[in-house]
């Protein structure tokens, strides 16, 4: 039996999740220019909100997902409003912002552990056999199909907004040069808050999808940041198209890589790729050398 189609399917699914993370991550990085750890916790917040509403309270699943996305977006917005905006106005260095984000990330994760225990939880019901589909010899569940479609849709929407709308131009302007943006009348603080909200929504969604596909636990954030940051750096940090590309590249390399290498080396592959890029092409695929 040819396992290539299955590996391709696995790669696409992994890539889709990484893509959502990278999209959110890049959006925020473009505007703020420092490595932000908070998205890791936001993914967990998204996943746990859905778990709480859907599994514990038994609410409708569509409502729970939307609520999860919004809650994650809201926490992201809060982090900017309460912490990062102040740091920006004091012209804090990137290192300081990074450390602050690490603190917030740790705090939020601990909060989740306290509220929900550090046990791994499944989100979707296990009494039903998941509906699976077969295409060209590859099997996947409807959840995985949904993830793939959603991430493509998210990417296309974001790309369109950035390219075609005024809002998109303003976002690109702020990422490019915050001072000039202010001079031409853009309220950069308010815009950045919006960017945080939207980016965090995307990341919250990625956490929810991971919850559906595998499950959630409070420390899932670290994994998310590592994969998301790797995908972003490979594709070109701050570049929305790059992040998307990098995410799928990462998914493919990870899944095809273990054809030859023992399975437990999977995380090492991601890091290996990251290091290769940092050495030879640090600006990533899509960015130009500065």
């Amino acid at each position: 039996m040819n396992i290539i189609p299955q590996i391709v399917a696995n790669s696409l699914i992994a890539g889709s999740i990484y893509a959502l993370i990278a999209l959110g991550f890049n959006l925020v990085y473009g505007a703020t220019r420092f490595v932000n750890m908070v998205p890791g916790a936001l993914a967990a917040i998204g996943g746990y909100t859905v778990f709480f509403l859907f599994n514990r309270l038994g609410l409708n699943i569509y409502f729970s997902v939307i609520a999860g996305v919004v809650v994650a977006g809201f926490f992201g917005y809060l982090s900017d409003r309460l912490v990062f905006r102040k740091l920006r106005s004091h012209k804090a260095s990137n290192l300081v912002s990074f450390v602050a984000s690490l603190g917030i990330f740790t705090m939020l994760q601990a909060l989740i552990s306290i509220l929900f225990t550090s046990q791994f939880q499944s989100v979707l019901s296990v009494t039903e056999n998941p509906k699976t589909y077969q295409i060209l010899g590859a099997t996947f569940t409807w959840v995985q199909g949904l993830i793939f479609i959603t991430s493509i849709a998210a990417f296309v929407s974001l790309a369109l907004i950035l390219k075609k709308t005024s809002f998109g131009k303003a976002v690109r302007a702020v990422s490019d040069d915050e001072e000039v943006s202010k001079i031409i009348g853009i309220n950069t603080n308010r815009l950045i808050s919006w960017i945080f909200f939207i980016g965090s929504c995307l990341i919250g969604l990625s956490g929810i999808f991971i919850g559906f596909d595998i499950g959630i636990n409070p420390t899932m954030g670290l994994f998310i940041i590592l994969e998301g940051a790797t995908a972003s750096i490979i594709g070109g940090i701050g570049n929305v198209y790059g992040g998307f590309l990098g995410a799928f590249l990462l998914g493919f390399v990870e899944n095809f890589g273990i054809l030859k290498i023992p399975g437990e080396w999977k995380p090492a592959i991601a890091f290996g790729l990251l290091i290769l890029f940092l050495i030879f092409k640090p600006e990533g695929i899509m960015n130009k050398k500065k």
Binding site: M1, I3, A14, F120, G215, K266
Partner: peptide
């Protein structure tokens, strides 16, 4: 196929075994 004790995605390994 081996996997890290805390790994939660064993699909690649399972695909190879299958």
């Amino acid at each position: 196929e081996g996997y890290q004790q805390d790994a939660r995605d064993l699909r690649s390994q399972i695909t190879k075994i299958k």
